[in-house]
Amino acid sequence: MTFSGVYVPLITPFDAAGAVALEALECLAHDALGSGATGLVALGTTAEPAALTAGERRAVVEVVARVCRERHAPLVVGADSAAEVAGLRGVAGALSLVPPFLRPGEDGVVAHFEALAAVAAVPLIVYHVPYRTGQQLSTGALRRITAIDGIAGIKYANGGIDAGTAELLADPPADFAVLGADDAVLSPLLAMGAHGGILASAHVATADFAGLVAAWHAGDAVRARALGGRLAALSLALFAEPNPTVIKGVLHALGRIPTAAVRLPLLPAGAATVAAALRHVPAPVAG
């Protein structure tokens, strides 16, 4: 399966008592797919998975998987260990982070993904986000990873667009998806040949993000540039404080989740930051 289009890495909404608001999560999943998202990600880093209990994580996957089955949409699940990727069934893929903190070196990272892919029950998407993991990877190392059987794509969050990005996309690996994840620079990444994105910002303006991907893939640069500029401003506002705090604040202000609560070590976004982000949210289309 080739991954393309917009995947929304769903937040985990909480109710006033602090429990996971599963009904709100189900609504978010339906809304994203109904507004043009290709698929969903459950238990990505945007979902605060480390702050959830094992039971909560199971419940989140069950809800999102049910929505994806009903809508015949692909589901990707965050899974980083051999036991997790081996245990996944009935989903389109696993999103697996480059090992954080240890900085094992490029050979260690490649060996890690060779081991994961050897036991995985589903295709893997590698999450490369060096400003969070502490592990930069050269284009050569990325190409070694793309050649591993069972790895289908990369969530590419290099912190921007640099020479390595250009080198990767100038000669993209065959049958391998490059999915942008630095939301504010999605448009230029698509212009260079990326297949889509895994985009927390697409919780809002989902249809516009889907339209941006479609416009670049269709070669409609005029429409794509107009959308890209507006969505870049939205994304910058939504990431003005640690993710997903501003997104939760915006979704709560829009009445889409019961609270803006996050779990420690995160703290809720400030009211001024949320208000600034709301000014970039497009008005709903009358219908």
Score class of each variant (00 low, 15 high):
Ile154Gln: 12
Ala205Tyr: 06
Gly134Leu: 14
Ile125Trp: 06
Ala120Asn: 04
Leu33Lys: 04
Asp220Trp: 01
Trp216Asp: 10
Thr38Gly: 02
Gly34Asp: 07
Gly87Gln: 04
Gly134Ser: 13
Ala184Gln: 14
Leu52His: 12
Val67Gly: 08
Cys68Phe: 11
Tyr156Arg: 02
Asp80Gln: 09
Ala54Trp: 07
Thr146Arg: 11
Gly34Val: 07
Arg132Leu: 10
Pro284Gln: 09
Thr139Ala: 15
Gln135Leu: 01
Gly18Ala: 01
Val222Lys: 13
Leu264Ile: 13
Leu43Ser: 10
Leu186Gly: 03
Cys27Arg: 03
Ala240Tyr: 11
Ser187Asp: 11
Ala286Lys: 14
Leu264Lys: 10
Ala37Trp: 04
Asn158Cys: 00
Val98Lys: 04
Ile145Gly: 06
Val91Pro: 00
Gly44Tyr: 11
Gly44Val: 07
Leu169Lys: 10
Leu10Gly: 05
His112Val: 03
Ile198Phe: 06
Leu227Ala: 09
Val91His: 01
Gly108Arg: 15
His72Leu: 14
Ser4Cys: 10
Gly5Ala: 14
Val185Thr: 00
Leu75Ile: 13
Gln136His: 11
Ala92His: 05
Val274Asn: 01
Leu251Val: 11
Gly211Glu: 06
Ala207Pro: 09
Leu186Val: 00
Leu28Ile: 03
Ala86Ile: 08
Ala147Ile: 07
Val91Cys: 02
Thr139Asn: 05
Ala286Val: 15
Asp162Asn: 01
Ala276Trp: 00
His280Asn: 14
Gly108Phe: 15
Val61Ser: 09
Val20Phe: 09
Tyr156His: 08
Ala17Pro: 01
Gly153Ala: 09
Pro265Asp: 10
Ala226Gly: 10
Ala42Phe: 03
Val67Ala: 02
Val64Asn: 03
Leu10Gln: 05
Thr12Trp: 01
Thr12Gly: 05
